[in-house]
């Protein structure tokens, strides 16, 4: 396990600066929540970390070394927002997970070892291993999101980035996915960068929180401190707007 660090990362698209000199650390075995509104640069930061976007300057390191974006071994994995578009509709969920398994699984027992590993991962996310041959269309949104989590875990990642993984789900299902995230974190000691616009959700899963606005991180610290005694005006504004706690 190693620590994910963003150091002075800047991402630009043309003339707009999406991420502006961001430094952030995801310590080993912790879940760091990243909150902010759309356009604040949360997702861009995540995409830069996994190599889907090229940062203009700064460094993203894992255990002190740059995050590898080539080759079969990918120690940084990502779960996407929409479980309806993040699984190939023509590929069985078992195949989708198997695709992300490390290639070095024993070649002699190859097929069998892979099948067992897929079954183990499905069980880990509380899905019936017998469903490995099902197509995504037969699964509910929450089940799909669990498959996406299993796929991310298949690559034996050191850090997982979860980008708004519950915002496309019905509330009845969101709870199950959040429980699973906490459970996996406790069981596997997983490090996670958990991106969400929902403060209550972040509060529930993350031990540290970073607040992003306009491409910059404006406040960062332990969850209880940031949400309990916010220092930055923007954090206070976000807290005030969270539904269900309207000051009268």
């Amino acid at each position: 396990m190693s620590e994910l660090r963003f150091e002075d990362v800047t991402v630009r698209f043309g003339r707009t600066t999406a991420v502006d000199r961001v430094s952030l650390t995801v310590p080993v075995g912790t879940v760091v929540g990243l909150v902010g509104e759309s356009g604040s640069g949360k997702s861009t930061l995540a995409r830069a970390a996994v190599g889907l976007t090229e940062p203009e300057s700064g460094a993203i390191t894992l255990g002190g070394r740059p995050v590898p974006h080539r080759g079969a071994r990918r120690p940084l994995q990502m779960v996407f927002q929409d479980p309806y578009s993040s699984l190939d509709p023509r590929m069985s969920i078992g195949d989708s997970i198997a695709e992300a398994l490390p290639r070095d699984l024993d070649d002699v027992r190859g097929r069998r070892a892979r099948r067992d590993e897929v079954a183990r991962l499905l069980e880990l996310v509380h899905l019936d291993p017998h469903r490995a041959r099902d197509l995504p269309a037969r699964l509910s949104g929450g089940q799909r999101q669990r498959v996406a989590l299993a796929r991310a875990l298949a690559g034996r990642p050191e850090v997982v980035i979860a980008d708004e993984i519950t915002s496309a789900l019905d509330v009845s299902i969101q709870g199950a996915v959040l429980n699973l995230v906490r459970e996996l974190q406790a069981e596997l000691g997983l490090s996670m960068l958990f991106i969400s616009h929902n403060l209550a959700v972040v509060r529930y899963v993350a031990s540290r929180v970073a607040v992003m606005q306009g491409g910059r991180i404006v406040e960062e610290g332990p969850t209880a401190q940031v949400l309990g005694a916010p220092e930055h005006d923007y954090t206070r504004e976000l807290l005030a707007a969270a539904p269900g706690r309207k000051p009268s």
């Binding site: 071994r73 990918r74 996407f80 993040s86 699984l87 190939d88 023509r90 989708s96 695709e99």
Partner: peptide, 26 residues
């Protein structure tokens, strides 16, 4: 541009494999 192709890229699947397994069938 779909997420499942991004997901495969993040999982370390090469472009040719992505083309054959994810893009062409779809």
């Amino acid at each position: 541009g779909r997420d499942y192709v991004s997901a495969a890229r993040v999982a370390g699947v090469g472009r040719l494999r992505i083309l054959l397994r994810h893009v062409l069938p779809n």
